[in-house]
Amino acid sequence: MTLPLRILLFYVNHLKPKVDLNRVAPEKIREMNRKELQKIGSIIDVSPCEMERVEEGAFTATDGTSISYRYYQPLEMGKEGKSILFFHGGGFVTRDLNSHDKACRRLAQENRMPVFSVAYRLAPEFKFPIPVQDCYDAFKWLVSATADLGLNPERITVMGDSAGGNLATVVCLLSKQEGGIAPWRQVLIYPTADARLCYPSVDSLGKGYFLTRELMEWFVMHYQRTEDDIINPLMSPLLAEDVSGLPPAYVCTADLDPLRDEGKAYAEKMEAAGVDVEFQNFRGVVHGFLNLRRLCKRQNSAMHADIAAFLSR
């Protein structure tokens, strides 16, 4: 673990004011996160990559709601018509397009592909399965829009970190279930895969490493609609009976992340079912290192190189 990352963890664990999650509304938590990101964003991450274009847009969800997205066009585009549909992390409750703006710019630049970052609706205002449906609607919208955008509908990669990784692979499950065009690839960055929180790393790393068990339980409580939701494969894809036939997957985990074991288990489940899987566990980093490039430069760069190689095939 790098010294800057140790300093960040010391700040989070010992100096940062403690918040009683049971006494603070989710909207207040979101506001606090936004302010903290503005305060330390330049400390934990590097400057944003320059883009050819960054535009806001919207599509219509199944229930008629307008869902926003942000489009990133890199300075140099590949000629294969490939694109990335990105779902941000944040436990289905927090984060937004701005929290992952730098990450999406890097992904667009390093893969020479346009990125569409989706502002799916958040819990608890919009509980499971509404965020799932928003993301699946985003995929279907992008498939239908590719002709106008000069893209290939059969070369769309679904990608996300943490809760976004969960949503990306669930989009693949739904696409398989309903038939038609499916995602070309799935990239799952330290995904949450089992809402039961029953894997050993949840207990061994659930305190002191940024993402805590307490916070994960708070996320699940706000996301679930009923007690039975946590065993629904669309919330816990590790519980899906059949994951064969899913798109090739790149799955990575962080070695100091409570989600480490379930991410590895999901990669192994897909591989056992015949899915082409590349798995990487990055040592010395914590959950969220996609957005900690200044603090986890070596591992972050290696992850981006892995993704670029995976998507170039």
Rank of each mutant, 00 (worst) to 15 (best):
R6L: 13
R6S: 14
I7K: 11
I7G: 03
H14L: 13
L15V: 15
K16H: 13
K18I: 08
K18W: 04
V19M: 03
L21Y: 11
A25K: 14
K28Q: 14
I29H: 01
R34Y: 01
E36A: 11
Q38H: 12
S42H: 13
I43M: 12
S47W: 10
P48K: 09
M51N: 08
E56Y: 07
G57C: 09
F59W: 04
F59S: 02
T60W: 06
S66K: 15
Q73R: 14
P74Y: 06
F92G: 01
D96S: 06
D96C: 04
N98E: 14
H100Y: 14
D101Q: 10
A103C: 10
L107F: 14
L107M: 15
Q109M: 13
E110T: 13
R112M: 13
M113E: 03
M113N: 04
L122A: 03
A123F: 03
P124T: 00
F126P: 06
K127A: 00
K127H: 05
Q133D: 10
Q133Y: 07
D134M: 08
F139Y: 06
W141Q: 02
V143I: 11
D148G: 11
G150V: 04
P153E: 02
P153S: 02
I156Y: 01
V158E: 03
V158N: 07
G160L: 01
D161K: 09
S162F: 06
A163Q: 00
C172D: 10
L174C: 08
S175C: 07
E178I: 07
G179I: 02
R185H: 09
R185Y: 07
L188Q: 01
P191C: 06
P191H: 10
A193F: 02
F210A: 12
R213K: 15
F219T: 09
H222E: 02
Q224M: 13
T226V: 05
D229I: 05
L234W: 07
L238W: 05
A249T: 13
V251K: 04
C252A: 10
T253W: 08
L256K: 08
L259G: 03
L259N: 09
E262K: 01
E268L: 13
K269V: 02
E278Q: 13
E278N: 12
F282L: 09
L290W: 11
R293I: 11
Q299S: 14
N300Y: 14
A305D: 15
A308P: 11
